[in-house]
Structure formats: structure tokens, C-alpha cells
Write a protein that binds this DNA or RNA. Structure first.
Lengths: 237, 237
DNA sequence: TGCCGTCTCACCATTTTTGGGGAGTTGGAA
DNA sequence: TTCCAACTCCCCAAAAATGGTGAGACGGCA
């Protein structure tokens, strides 16, 4: 079994096109005997890239309805490091339940398991499995295969990064220490006046930092700059 | 061999204290027969947390000298997703070579291998191995064990996050769809006027959304609200 | 030595955002 | 039915942010 996984991972490493990723995920799906498997890269400005076994209709529906904004799998994984069973996510909001119903109606299984993956420059992706079965069966399956799946997710993301270099945000010029200070304090809610006072510099000086940070980040305004700095992991709140 | 790894990972999952992590890393080091292994969490504000088999003198020296800013392993891994051999990093700067010399003088091996790890909220950590041997020996070793080591790194980081819950964001009231739209558009750089136009609502209405989102997120101003929404995964940019 | 990036400070006018009010509709939940 | 949350709209004045332009000092690097 582990031997087989090695073979699959090795094959994945050889993949040189999007098509190869798609074939690999279909092979994996069959190998593990689950209904669906999907790799979903959530990239900047709500653009998405991925491959998997979901019905095209569902994928398009997901995009059209902007379910990205509602999907508890996305927000739940975004806040987690370790893989998570969909049962353990927060489905309490009305929008989430409506989404869930819609998903099941489109062939997504009642069970699910997702692995968050993060790369440089704030890259974020998910590797998800979905299936129709009982809770006990699903728990047993995920317990057994979790480690292998983490590796699979890692290699899928590696390949996706290799094959789609344009999708990751251009690595921006690094910010200077003062610029990072400024961005960080703005991100925790300080006004410009407070930031200037905290850094014991004049507000005029502070403005220079903010502007230069904005320029380096290619941001249109302060809020945008802070959002980009956060998304790229340049600052941490 | 794989059986042994499972046992070690399982033991790691049971760890409930920093000490247990330290013992686990020592056991792993002995298991793989490498000179050093270290888990190193690099937090945003320059604080550091970790465990490993490096000499305490070297660790303190590293901190005192602020080698964090010079270390090519740090900057190299920060820009990569996949594990990397230290030989493949950029050691060309003068500071980097001085650092390397100092490191070897303090018992760090001539070979090294590091795995970048990223968690929520821009968390970043490294899992590194260091050894004294020839290039060929090291290449063979890393080739053989890379996948296992990725998993080990993952589980170390999971434990570190569990044991140091310093930055798990408190859950807040969910935002309404319109509030999410507003926050998202602000995060991608739109001005209030543009957001209002995009959502085809009056700017006054938009303000109500922003204010209520700010209230729900406990934010002091719009930038803060967007930063929190991003950090909590409520919006994705 | 000269260049470059960082850090520091200043003034102007304009645009944008914010904080304080109030008010009507809809659709789902109790 | 009643209530509440979400959605929509409006006014006014104060506070904050922005855009443009300019300049001196320091340290590292070639």
C-alpha cells in the first residue's frame, strides 16, 4: 500500500501539465475509493485554479454563486493548520447550510475531509476529499489515510506551483523595517496619528513609509496595502 | 521502517508539553542517525520558538547576533514551498558566508536540509536537519527520507501550534453577505465610492455595512476590520 | 568616492472617511 | 402575528487620509 502511494507520488512528480494533474487526481480517487477528490488553489482577487472530480456544473455553479465567500470549508481551513473533517466545521450560518444543501444536490458527498496548504507569498490552497458514507466509516478512512493524504496534498501543491508560476502573486520588494512597523500597527487598528506616536516619528515621516510600502506592494490605498502585506505573510497580526 | 515512523509520529501526537517535543526531536535524530535536527518557529515580531539538538551556546549566539536576518536558510525557505537542500541556497553575500563559517564553528554540519512550514495567520516555521558527510551521502539520505520528513515537520508544527496557542483568533459573529462583499472589495483596494458603485448601492448604505462589520469584528477602523476579516479567513483575497 | 536605500522632517489643498443623527422595506424565525 | 436581522436610503460637520513637492543625514556597497 505504501509502495503504491510511493508510485503515485512519483508519478505526480513527473507531471508536466495541468492534464497530468487531472489524471493523477482521478487515479488517486480510484485508488482510495472515494467519490471525489479536488485540489483547489484559492488565489488572489477571488480567482481560482484547481482540478478534481467534481461535476463541471457544480464547479461553475460554485464560481457563479461566489460560494467561495460562504463555504465553511474555505474559512475553516484558512484558520487551521491540520486537516479537518467537514463535520467539525461551523455550518451554523444560514448561508452555510444553504450552500451545503446545494452542494449535496450537485453530487458532493455527505462526508468530507480537507487539507489546508500554504505556500510562499500567502498562497493558499485546499486538497479535499468527499464521499457518501456513515460517520464511522469516514472517521476510520480519514484516520487511516490522513498522513498519506497530507503528503499527496503537499505534492499536488508543489506541482501546481511549478506549473502555474504566474498565479502566485509577484514577490514584491521586501519592506524596510520601518515600513513593516507601520503596516503592522495599521493592521491592528491604530490611526496614522497613533502609529506615528508609537513609532515616535512625525506623521509626515510615517506617511512616507506608508506611501513607499503601498508602492512596493502595488497597493491602491492603505487598506489595500495592509491587506496585501497580511496576505503575503509580510506582516503578522 | 515505516512502522517505526508511525510509532514516532503517534508518540508526537501524544506530546502535551514542550519537553515532550524536545524528547521527540532527540529520538528522531537518533533514529535517522543525523547530527542535528531542529524545529524553529519564526514569529512575525522577530520572536522565536523552537526545539532541537543544537548547542545552547549556538542558539543564543544566533539570537544575539540576529542571524535570523542573515541566515539564507530562513530567507530561502521563506520563498519556497518544497524542502530544500542547503547547498542550493544563495550563500553569495558576505554576511551569509560569515554566518556559515560561524555556524560550522559551533557544531552545525556542512550539510543541511530544511522544510518550510506555514500555518494560519502567516505563521512560519522551519524543520531542519544538519549533518557532516559528503554531498553524495547527503543527497541519498534526503532523497530517501524526504517524504517522511515532510510529515514529521507537519506534525511538529501541529504540536507547536497546539502548545503555543498565542495566535488563534477568537471567533466572532459571522458577517452578512453584503458585509462580506464590502470587506472583500475594500481588501482589494476599492475606495468606498467604488465599492458602492460595484455593489450598486448608495455610499450611505455601504457605510452601514462597513460600520456593522467593524462592530462585529471588534475593529477600530476600516483597515483594522479588513485585516481582522482576512486573518480570520472571513474573506479571502 | 559616489551612489543608493533608509530614515527623518515640512507645507499646501483636496478628497475621503468617519461619527452623530433618523427611517422605510423585506423575509424569515419565534 | 410579532419581532428581528438584513437591506436600503438620507443629512451634516468634523476628522483623517491623500497627492504633490522638497530636503537633509546616515550607512552600506562598489
Amino acid at each position: 500500500m505504501t509502495q503504491r502511494l510511493d508510485t503515485i507520488l512519483h508519478g505526480l512528480e513527473q507531471a508536466d501539465q495541468h492534464d497530468a494533474l487531472q489524471r493523477a487526481i482521478e487515479a488517486l480517487c480510484a485508488f482510495y475509493g472515494v467519490d471525489h477528490m479536488v485540489y483547489h488553489w484559492v488565489s488572489g482577487s477571488g480567482e481560482q485554479y484547481g482540478c478534481g472530480t467534481y461535476d463541471d456544473v457544480w464547479v461553475q455553479h460554485y464560481i457563479d454563486k461566489q460560494y467561495l465567500r460562504v463555504d465553511p470549508v474555505i474559512s475553516g481551513c484558512y484558520q487551521r493548520f491540520h486537516p479537518v473533517d467537514w463535520k467539525r466545521l461551523d455550518w451554523s450560518s444560514k448561508a452555510a447550510r444553504a450552500f451545503q444543501k446545494d452542494a449535496i444536490a450537485h453530487g458532493v458527498g455527505n462526508q468530507g475531509f480537507s487539507i489546508p496548504i500554504r505556500g510562499p507569498n500567502g498562497q493558499f490552497a485546499l486538497f479535499s476529499l468527499s464521499h457518501n458514507c456513515t460517520d464511522d466509516e469516514w472517521d476510520a478512512f480519514t484516520e487511516t489515510n490522513r498522513r498519506d493524504l497530507i503528503l499527496v496534498a503537499h505534492y499536488f501543491n508543489k506541482k501546481a506551483l511549478d506549473l502555474e508560476p504566474g498565479r502566485s502573486p509577484e514577490p514584491s520588494q521586501p519592506l524596510s523595517p520601518r515600513e513593516i512597523d507601520a503596516m503592522t500597527l495599521l493592521a491592528v487598528g491604530y490611526s496614522r496619528a497613533q502609529v506615528a506616536e508609537t513609532l515616535t516619528i512625525s506623521e509626515h515621516t510615517l506617511r512616507v513609509y506608508i506611501e513607499s510600502a503601498r508602492f512596493k506592494l502595488g497597493a491602491l490605498n492603505t487598506t489595500h496595502a495592509v491587506a496585501r502585506a497580511l496576505a503575503r505573510g509580510i506582516i503578522v497580526v
